[in-house]
Design a protein around this nucleic acid. Structure first.
Lengths: 221, 221, 221, 221
DNA sequence: GATGAATGAGCTTTCATTCAT
DNA sequence: TATGAATGAAAGCTCATTCAT
């Protein structure tokens, strides 16, 4: 009946591993903040979810705010690492751009906590994110990547437009994130679930199409 | 008897106009919810901003939640009305589409409370918006408008692509709203203010370009 | 038996008198702070003692610290008023001095909260008292009174010593307060209760004797 | 194997000396209790100040309360020892009395922790001090000393007054301690620092004068 | 219609203390 | 002997809400 026949109590006696406890708290915090925002997340609920107790949050992080900051930094760290591993320099520009869009789309789709944290931050008017170097420095490599793709694309004749890299990235980001960041309102509006797999698949194709068409279309005719 | 009409009363001119008081509360509520979200907004602060007192909120709306719901409905009502007045049927399809994009862009730019309420709702997983017919019914005329534009555009040869109207609208919405909904994080990321007038002007041109290019580009070559 | 025969419940239904509630809280606060010090006093216990609830403390005073400050100021206000009513100018200098000492002795004996608050403040290194004008200005009239007595005493030949008024007042204060401020330690030390009426009576005589002898003794012989 | 005697160990020289650790904790405790009182002192802060950790406090003393008791007893032990070494029996009565007052004055001035602990105890209504034989027995030799001085003084004609020895000692103590025990309130009141060296020097002279004048004055004239 | 008084519920944070190695 | 991990209990404070004029 219990999950284990031989032991009476399935629960582990007591975790005495600081790193593990800290990590469980951080994970629980990320989940809670993503789900409820900074103000809405409850410190005792995070502790319970982490199978720890409240005081451990204070011991390991200092307080709710510090835990949030850590969760935020940790969340941003994820995409940063992957973006750097992309290595689009070896691909033909159109392929590289397609790859970048798809990566962005997939990453956001697969990391709802990241999307949620972005929302939190904008709700708080960037109060915390403003002090995270991980965020304010995250654009540079990305912009350089895009710049390189655009340059090579124009050189090869694939891309026929001059475009500010940040402008382009904002567009890519917007196309890839809107159905996640505003999933509920849009889903109600269109009476379909914008998080459903088939819809996501269709949108992925569409988004790539929009971006590449924009870059490659012949406007001279 | 007590209050004498002819004497100058030292007391501040207490508004005895129920409708006006109600409206002031609603406006203050919309501002507060937009600024701080549902959880973050303070009922007493709303009362003070409305130059009313807390109990009036309960009298006129029933509670914080009901006030929020009213504020939400009211906020959504605004765009609905304007969307219906658009009357794009008379314009050539490309012009109509440009008009639609520009209207969307401008409306969102000029109504930050609307953008903020969308964020609130998605943070709350659509808890309130789900029950607002004003929202769930708002897409229909829009979809019909787009359908009409697309049909006419394909007929005229201007538009060379088959596209699901909701998909297109999500794209338009995304391009027009991202720099507002995620203004703070993107501004930190790119070290520039995405709410600045010149940036907005540039983006407006870009957004129209992206949409129209997508629809009009010749993919056959 | 109960205060009213016809009602079942003797408790008043609910106090709706703001001033009375505020006063009850202040009184309870003064008692609690005197008894347990700032850190030791409990906000909920004060509320209960005042037959109010915690939130009223915040409503009327702003917080524990502000309540303490008010209690402190209020406590100091008491002696200030009485000191000003002393009017020793009409008495012969020796009588005036005796009167001052006796007043000081009696006031301190009859106002244990004042003595306790002095202790609190010194324990807190004057953190709160420093910002109370009621305290820092309280010495001036007193010093002037003493100065007048000393001048007149020297002129009449009753007092045969030159003495700094603050120095004298510190001595008077010390003689009158020590058995109260350090009642417990001294009582343990001497195995008798220094708060007992007969001991107090004896000390009162002694204290007056010490001060007057000091002022009037003939040191020339 | 692990720890090598001949190699320089990078680790800080961990004290493996139980007695030394205990002493450091006790010293830190005395300082902390003197500074902040029993309730205000923090157990972890004491541990840190002692360069030990919290658990050592429990190991060596049993808990906060027991540490406080030990600190209290230790503090009282100091003055006891010195008082016994005074040996005033060899001095002429007036000189002996002067010596007693000066010793009391100097000891209190130089041992602020003692003054502070007295305050703590009176704040706690003697809860701890009551059970310390070191305190309740401390008066006896002192009273005997004073009795001897008074007897000899009256015999020699130097002292012209009958006075209860405890009464006199309370007066001496009061004159010597007030500016220390109530330094902050009195300093604020008189707008001068009662702990300043020159003020202390002046008071020392004054205090001796008050006591000796009281004892030696001719009241018969 | 409007307002001061009162309250229930909950939240973050702190502190002394004990457990396990 | 020493230390990192964990916990029970409570404290101060805030917020939405209702009561009584």
């Amino acid at each position: 009946m219990a999950k284990d026949d031989t032991t009476i109590d399935a629960r582990p006696p007591r975790k005495r591993d600081a790193a593990a406890t800290r990590q469980r708290i951080l994970d629980a915090g990320k989940a809670a903040f993503a789900e409820h925002g900074f103000a809405g997340a409850r410190i005792d609920q995070i502790a319970r979810a982490a199978e720890a107790n409240i005081q451990m949050i204070y011991r390991y992080f200092g307080g709710k705010e510090e835990l949030y900051l850590t969760a935020l930094a940790d969340t941003y760290a994820g995409i940063r690492v992957l973006e750097r591993q992309l290595d689009l320099g070896a691909l033909p520009p159109a392929d590289g751009m397609r790859r970048l869009v798809e990566f962005t789309f997939d990453y956001l789709r697969d990391n709802p906590q990241f999307v949620a944290m972005i929302r939190n931050e904008n709700m708080a008017h960037g109060r915390f994110v403003r002090n995270l170097p991980a965020v304010s420095d995250s654009a540079l490599p990305l912009v350089e990547t895009i710049e390189d793709l655009l340059r090579r694309g124009r050189a090869s004749g694939d891309f026929r437009i001059e475009i500010d890299p940040p402008q382009l990235y904002v567009t890519i980001r917007s196309l890839c994130i809107i159905h996640l960041a505003q999933r509920d309102t849009l889903s109600v509006m269109f009476k379909r679930d914008l998080g459903a797999p088939d819809w996501l698949a269709a949108r992925r194709v569409h988004v790539v199409d929009v971006v590449l068409t924009f870059l490659m279309a012949d406007r001279t005719r």
